[in-house]
Nucleic acid binder design. Sequence first.
DNA 1: GCATACTGTAATAAATTATATTACAAATAT
DNA 2: ATATTTGTAATATAATTTATTACAGTATGC
Lengths: 135, 135
Amino acid sequence: MLSGKFAITIHILTLLTKFPNDFLSSEFIAGSINLNPVLVRKEIANLKAHHIVESKEGKNGGTRLAKNATDITLKEIFQMTFDTINLGYAKNQPHPDCPVGKKINENLSGLYADLNEKVSLELKNITLEDFSNQF
Amino acid sequence: MLSGKFAITIHILTLLTKFPNDFLSSEFIAGSINLNPVLVRKEIANLKAHHIVESKEGKNGGTRLAKNATDITLKEIFQMTFDTINLGYAKNQPHPDCPVGKKINENLSGLYADLNEKVSLELKNITLEDFSNQF
DNA sequence: GCATACTGTAATAAATTATATTACAAATAT
DNA sequence: ATATTTGTAATATAATTTATTACAGTATGC
């Protein structure tokens, strides 16, 4: 899955916030991000599934916000584009007979869950409107 | 660079903490992580550069902690294995003539710096000793 | 001093993941 | 009708991560 998911999604949403009365095409959005339009449409599909935007098919179609930018927090966007804050895991299954190997992933998960909470707390206080106002 | 860097490094350090009197070989450590020994040695090189561990070459050589586990915080480990908390950037340079494209990366960086601070604050309070005691 | 068991590091290969492209059916405005 | 756009699948390319091979250098202990 797209690793720039969060960044791409927030870029899309910022554009939609800046043009609240227009249906923006994936082509137009892709031009600003400099990304393939198909990938933009994929992220829009995700946003639609979460009822954050709505699209219109056909000529002059496109996408716009489905709710007010003041009612969307970065926490929501984070949650729909990122599992959790995560400093990574070693790729292979660690050795199950080693006391450390046996529990390392569990303990890392615990740590990451902790970090995730701090980050979520922070993101909950920033609305899409706040973020967009910086532009 | 290794994306499991943090996890691998903390795994290595936990092992060293559990066997504080031994020089552990990269082969032994690699067995617990289930990772190629060369990659273990690479992470150890990084740890050595930060004076957290010391190694002995030659027969019966290996690596051990160079300071007490109570004096190493997860923040240090985080900093030496991860640049910053980071929810990602779109891969390509965004369009410079678009007001959003022009500033998106700057604004994302600002946000990430903010998150980074929260995470660092949390990690500063956890020592390697604390982490190791969970095993 | 010689065999052995390590570290250190470079070079290359293989695997995985991320992004881009192509293609086309379905929808809708004019 | 035609043009434009979404939606989505299939496939290709590029980038990144991890693994492997190779070997020089170093300490240990016989």
